[in-house]
């Protein structure tokens, strides 16, 4: 059985697709067979971020309508054999996403994949609801900014009431990812801090992706930013994958870091008089 992950936020432009691409690639890099599905009907973007836009022949609408089978539809990633992409349709008809149709796709993918990553569109309409419906886990992407935090809270409300798991009285694993974070602006008091957002939303924090120019460069090149080992954002996505697999949190690993730093500092201090 595959684990279904939804990447969602409510607000647009916070980094859902960037996060979906990097999470999916990150899982594939850990040798997990991963499929990533773009639910943004009419405005597909995931194919561009993944760099496979010219290889899209069939899309999710074709599968749901029965015009193509899932095997024809999945695009294999050019860099990782474990990663497959299911593109969104560019049709304007959003009604193509039905609960049964999506359910069938998830079910069929579950047979052969370890993870299914659902890239949700912005908003709270059909595409977003369908992206989250079958989720076992949710990555809620939030910017340190008022409207994004508010929308994330609304999405959290929906995750706990409008999903298959919620209907069955089961819980969804929720993880907070803060993106476009700037330490500088937080310390000058003009940006909500990690602590502020954590307190407001009240779900476990799994990663803080810094505002970084490398994200745009990666998008330009059609490569998920996680594949850039020099990028601070890419490194944090790597950390998110590690924490996700080991069921750890951002705090746990940042505390550890502090410990090591303290230890080194202490050693130096101790060594100084001698």
């Amino acid at each position: 059985m595959a684990k279904v992950i939804v990447v969602t936020s409510g607000k647009g432009g916070v980094g859902k697709t960037t996060t979906s691409a990097s999470i999916a690639m990150g899982l594939a890099m850990q040798h997990k067979k991963t499929a990533v599905i773009d639910f943004d009907i009419g405005l597909r973007n995931l194919d561009l971020i993944m760099g496979c836009e010219r290889r899209v022949v069939y899309d999710i609408a074709n599968v749901i309508r029965g015009e193509a089978n899932l095997k024809q539809d999945l695009i294999r990633d050019k860099n990782n054999v474990n990663l497959y992409i299911l593109a969104a349709s560019q049709t304007r008809d959003k009604e193509v996403l039905t609960q049964e149709g999506v359910g069938k796709i998830i079910e069929e993918l579950s047979e052969t994949f370890d993870y299914i990553v659902c890239d949700s569109p912005a908003g709270i309409e059909k595409g977003a609801m369908m992206a989250m419906y079958y989720a076992d886990a949710a990555f809620v992407v939030t910017n340190p900014e008022v409207s994004s935090v508010r929308d994330s809270d609304r999405i959290l409300g929906m995750l706990s009431s409008k999903t298959k798991r919620a209907e069955a009285g089961e819980e969804i694993d929720e993880y907070l990812i803060i993106t476009r974070y700037s330490d500088k602006r937080v310390s000058s008091g003009e940006m909500l801090s990690i602590e502020d957002i954590k307190e407001l939303l009240g779900i476990p924090l799994i990663g803080v992706v810094p505002e970084s120019t490398t994200v745009l460069n990666a998008s330009n090149a059609g490569l998920p930013v996680i594949t850039d080992p020099k990028s601070a954002a890419g490194q944090e996505y790597q950390n998110i994958i590690k924490r996700f697999i080991s069921r750890s949190t951002y705090e746990a690993s940042s505390k550890k870091k502090k410990g090591i730093f303290k230890r080194i500092f202490k050693k130096e201090k101790e060594g100084a008089p001698a």
């Binding site: 935090v149 508010r150 809270d153 609304r154 409300g157 008091g189 003009e190 909500l192 801090s193 502020d196």
Partner: peptide
């Protein structure tokens, strides 16, 4: 003045989120 803006944002959000949660 700068110190304030993030604090203001947090206060506003606390109220709005509390309202949202009681509504849902």
């Amino acid at each position: 003045k700068r110190k304030k803006s993030a604090g203001v944002a947090k206060d506003r959000l606390q109220i709005i989120i509390a309202q949202q949660r009681t509504e849902t």
